[in-house]
Amino acid sequence: MAGLPHPLATQFAAHLARDRRRSPHTVRAYHATAERLLGFLARHWGGAVDAAALAAIGTADLRAYLAHRRGEGLTNASAARELSAVRGFLAFAGIVVPPLKGPRKARAVPRPVSPDDIVALAGEVADEAREPWIAARDWAVLMLLYGAGLRIGEALALTGGILPLGETLAVTGKRARTRTVPLLPQVRAAVEAYARQSPWPIVRAEPLFRGARGGPLDPAIIRRAVQGARGRLGLGERTTPHALRHSFATHLLGRGADLRALQELLGHASLASTQIYTAVDAAHLLDVYRNAHPRA
């Protein structure tokens, strides 16, 4: 029956969540890719696709699928991620993945936001909040992103068990890896101010940050608040919650932090993920040189 989840895709998603310990976001994205691929192949081949039929997939079929997806507006970066998900799905199904090069994509260099702009942004978000406790909540979340380098999902996954706060915070990141990050006094103060004002009880095993009705805070609410604030402040569209984490990394690197320490603070699995920030800092220094050096 059309529209029902495909068993192979469902099994793949369960494997990612249970055995690979991938994040819910990754599980959803890869599950959706597997469903799209199986649906495309059913139309492409003119029949239902089971494990035996899937074993016949070839390079031409993958090229046809990617061409179909590109026709739906997929960018190079998104097409590369789609191909990675397809390869993971086929490998899970025990299929030798046909050779196929993904689209070449340049690695984007994150653009840091200046400390003054970050404070202005957080203030604007707080000022637009409907209630004082929501203003305190939004300020605290944004301070965790910039002041501690947390991903938005990591910040919103914090529970009441982190209170009372000390000088460090244990954070569970991607693939359930736990790291310890230092807390600046300003960040501690922001979180504590929110906890004092929250109309909802702080429960050790429940989310610390709550939505207006008391449920877990949806990251989309923070993203929309930042989007509105950056428009009012005239900041660029790349000023997102995740850009605050990029800025945390870039500013630390610029003040002398070494890459290994930064890797630990950010929770990157490999040093290569952290090294991208050296390009950010070099680009910033070049801009300073060009604008300030009398012979530039």
Rank of each mutant, 00 (worst) to 15 (best):
A135P: 07
T168D: 13
G88C: 01
I222L: 15
R204Q: 08
V288T: 12
F89M: 08
Y277T: 03
V280A: 09
A176N: 08
L235E: 03
T172S: 03
T33L: 06
W200Q: 02
L74K: 13
D258P: 03
G173E: 02
R21V: 01
A106L: 09
A14S: 12
T26L: 00
R175F: 08
L285D: 04
G149T: 09
D258T: 04
A283R: 12
Y194F: 05
L266I: 13
M1H: 15
E82A: 03
S23F: 00
G254V: 01
L83K: 05
D281C: 04
T159P: 06
D281K: 00
A283Y: 02
Y30G: 00
A257I: 15
D287R: 15
R70Y: 01
R70G: 09
F248N: 05
E72R: 15
A193F: 03
W200F: 15
R151M: 01
P110G: 03
L156M: 05
G256H: 14
S198T: 15
A243E: 06
W45G: 03
A225R: 09
A272Q: 11
A106I: 06
V203L: 14
H6N: 14
R36H: 15
R151I: 04
T159A: 03
L90F: 02
A52S: 14
L41D: 00
G94N: 10
R232A: 10
V181N: 07
E206M: 08
A140D: 03
R87W: 01
H293C: 02
I95H: 09
R18T: 11
A190D: 01
V226A: 10
T278D: 02
D117F: 07
R22Y: 05
V226P: 10
Q186W: 09
I162A: 10
A9L: 09
H246S: 11
V203N: 05
A148S: 15
A269K: 11
P112R: 04
A257K: 04
E35I: 02
A212V: 10
G267P: 04
Q227G: 14
A80R: 08
Y277G: 00
G256F: 14
P219H: 03
V125Y: 06
A80L: 13
L144S: 02
S78I: 09
T278M: 09
E82C: 06
V203I: 13
R230L: 01
A155M: 08
A243H: 03
V125D: 04
R179N: 13
L286N: 06
P7C: 11
A220F: 11
L142G: 02
A176T: 01
P5C: 05
T240M: 10
T180D: 04
A120Q: 11
A29W: 00
G231Q: 15
R290H: 15
G46K: 12
L158P: 02
E124A: 14
A91Q: 08
R63T: 15
G88I: 00
A108C: 07
T239H: 10
